[in-house]
Design a protein around this nucleic acid. Structure first.
Lengths: 185, 185
DNA sequence: TACTGTGAAATATTTCACAGCA
DNA sequence: TGCTGTGAAATATTTCACAGTA
């Protein structure tokens, strides 16, 4: 937004937390701020990018090209180019061969070879809960480094393959609990 | 799964936490367990359902019937019937009038009336980040009780309307941080 | 002067350890 | 005997308060 310097107070307001929280958290990774001044936005962005893995571009493989899968392929993540789908797989015959957002849908049995050839690093699971574990096992066998799970299933993985669950099922419950508890409705 | 009784130890294993954690958390809401025995599964389910708002069925309104919106309409939440879409809105002319999963897509300008008539309680935002705040404001004006936000935007709301963000943008970063940090790849 | 970085204090959460009960 | 519920202890997180500095 053109701002050159930002204070922990401003950031705290934006994040809905205490200024000291911002400072402690940032200081944990290094001394990014300037006393009496604040944080230089460009420098801070650079440092945060660095913490999160620098300019590494990740190669993603999608499993399950339904509505959700398509949404991910098309609008994945802003378009900053950091996360790129390089492969997509689906069990359904009729979807195989489709090209969506520049990615060609392949059958599940092509996974092993494709993961290797296209150097897929992260598996994104967008299949029904019932198939999620099976798909996860396939991805892990194929040599993936991490899994992002959009299904409602909770996935078991050997310790060396981290899994992040995007569990919006629980978010429904959490929201309704808040509404009920605070007598909002 | 047919199990009649379950112990805090078993639940802890399933959740990946300490048994005492399970007991403390449950005891916070009441004495659901039986000493020397464990928790009766049916009773526990009943109590948890109760904590989360009993058998109340929530009426949802979707804004944004793109790929993501469609996915939500079609597979919303298991099919336990607790969360039901009763209305859907979209800005695009060509989507208005479509019927998806039994819900008819209406134009945005119909929101006020529809929210009232169909007693929509929760607004689900599945539009592009750029439109999210505007849509949230419309929903709040229309009298919604809570918002589930699937866009990448962070939504401002007056204190009395709780917002839950399903921010899978950050999940990408978190996963990659883990991979990098633990030197997994 | 206006800000950060940071010890110390205040809170919150998690875990231990054991009394009490089926 | 095998489990829960729960004070007390151990940890972790958050906030305060202020020295240090551009």
């Amino acid at each position: 937004m053109g701002t050159e310097v930002v204070s922990s107070g401003t950031l705290a307001e934006m994040c809905g937390c205490n200024p000291a929280q911002i400072r402690k958290d940032l200081a944990y990774f290094g001394d990014f701020g300037v006393r009496g001044v604040g944080y230089y936005v460009q420098e801070l962005l650079f440092e945060i990018r660095n913490i999160l893995g620098g300019d590494k571009r990740w190669r993603l493989g999608l499993v399950g090209v339904g509505n959700l899968g398509c949404a991910l392929l098309k609008h994945g993540r802003g378009g900053d180019g950091q996360y790129n789908f390089v492969a997509a797989f689906d069990k359904k015959e009729k979807r195989v061969g489709l090209e969506i957002a520049g990615v060609c849908v392949q059958p599940l049995k092509a996974m092993n070879r494709a993961v290797e050839e296209k150097q897929v690093e992260i598996g994104v699971i967008a299949v029904k809960a019932a198939w999620a574990q099976e798909v996860a096992d396939m991805l892990i066998r194929a040599g993936i480094c991490g899994i992002l799970n959009f299904s409602f299933a909770r996935i078991e993985s050997p310790g060396h393959v981290p899994v992040e669950n995007v569990d919006f099922s629980a978010k429904f419950d959490k929201l309704c609990y808040q509404i009920k508890f605070k007598d909002y409705c």
